[in-house]
């Protein structure tokens, strides 16, 4: 019993220490942001790495999620005889919820792991130490552009995801199931408000900060061995996913 209590206390204090380190690191990242934005070319490169290279997977997933939403939504709504509302249901679901969340989860898997392993390998091959020795702050030169790249790429990717998703829902609902296209679009236009879109934008911005910070933190602090880099990559996906879902609930509760 005492053993369990001790282990519980240890793991709790361990997590608290980790949360504290995370907070300090995120604080450092945010404080460096204005200066890092001045070196815009480096940031643009990373927006390309994190964003443009994730486009295919985001678009494909968006299409299929939208199509499933079209099928399930149609099946559900026609039970109440209101299948014309399919456009509204799909758009709200995608813009407010599925777009930001699924994009963030996919982003953690594609771009987050790439970032973490890249930084981890840079540490393992002494590139980070070499930067230090050249009197170049690695956080400023290497970490910041990657973090900002994620923060900028995430809302853009989420927007594309939602757009393609709505197209997918339309494809199934209108073309396949025969929902009236006029009803589909006009109801959507009438019901979806700017506030709904903003909810999605805010969420994806917050997820961008979270996923970016977790990936660069884990990579930058990886133990410089093959195993350490592997573990950092895994932790990036696991932590990002849990944090995104947790934040999603909190943000939804606040903004509804």
């Amino acid at each position: 019993m005492r053993q369990i209590a001790r282990e519980l206390r240890q793991s709790l204090s361990g997590s608290l220490v980790r949360i504290g380190k995370y907070s300090l690191f995120v604080g450092r990242l945010l404080s460096e942001t204005p200066r890092a934005l001045l070196r815009f070319r480096l940031v643009v490169e990373q927006v390309y790495n994190a964003g443009a290279l994730s486009l295919v997977i985001i678009m494909l997933s968006g299409l299929f999620v939208g199509m499933v939403l079209g099928l399930q939504g149609y099946d559900l709504l026609q039970r109440f005889g209101s299948e014309e509302s399919l456009g509204t249901a799909a758009a709200l679901g995608l813009v407010k919820e599925l777009g930001p969340v699924v994009t963030a989860l996919l982003f953690a898997g594609r771009a987050g792991t790439a970032l973490a392993s890249e930084l981890g390998l840079m540490r393992a091959t002494d590139q980070i130490a070499a930067l230090e020795m050249m009197a170049v702050d690695p956080v400023r030169r290497v970490v910041m552009p990657r973090f900002l790249g994620s923060v900028i790429a995430m809302p853009l990717l989420a927007a594309i995801f939602s757009m393609i998703g709505i197209f997918g829902a339309q494809l199934v609902g209108v073309q396949l199931m025969g929902v009236d296209p006029g009803q589909f679009w006009s109801q959507m236009k009438g019901a979806v408000e700017v506030a709904d879109v903003m909810e999605g934008v805010i969420k994806s911005c917050v997820f961008g900060v979270a996923c970016g910070a977790i990936a660069v933190y884990e990579g930058f602090h990886a133990i410089p061995t093959a195993e350490g880099v592997g573990r950092a990559t895994t932790r990036t996906v696991v932590t990002s996913s849990v944090v995104v879902l947790l934040l999603d609930y909190m943000l939804t509760a606040v903004m509804l």
């Binding site: 590139q127 070499a130 020795m133 170049v136």
Partner: peptide, 28 residues
């Protein structure tokens, strides 16, 4: 400031792998 007066050669070179030879030398 002090490190700018030092140069260090790491055991494995520690070149930045995403830059060419020219860009690596031009980096500092």
């Amino acid at each position: 400031r002090l490190r700018r007066r030092m140069g260090m050669l790491f055991q494995n070179g520690a070149l930045l792998t995403d830059l060419s030879v020219y860009e690596n030398v031009a980096f500092p």
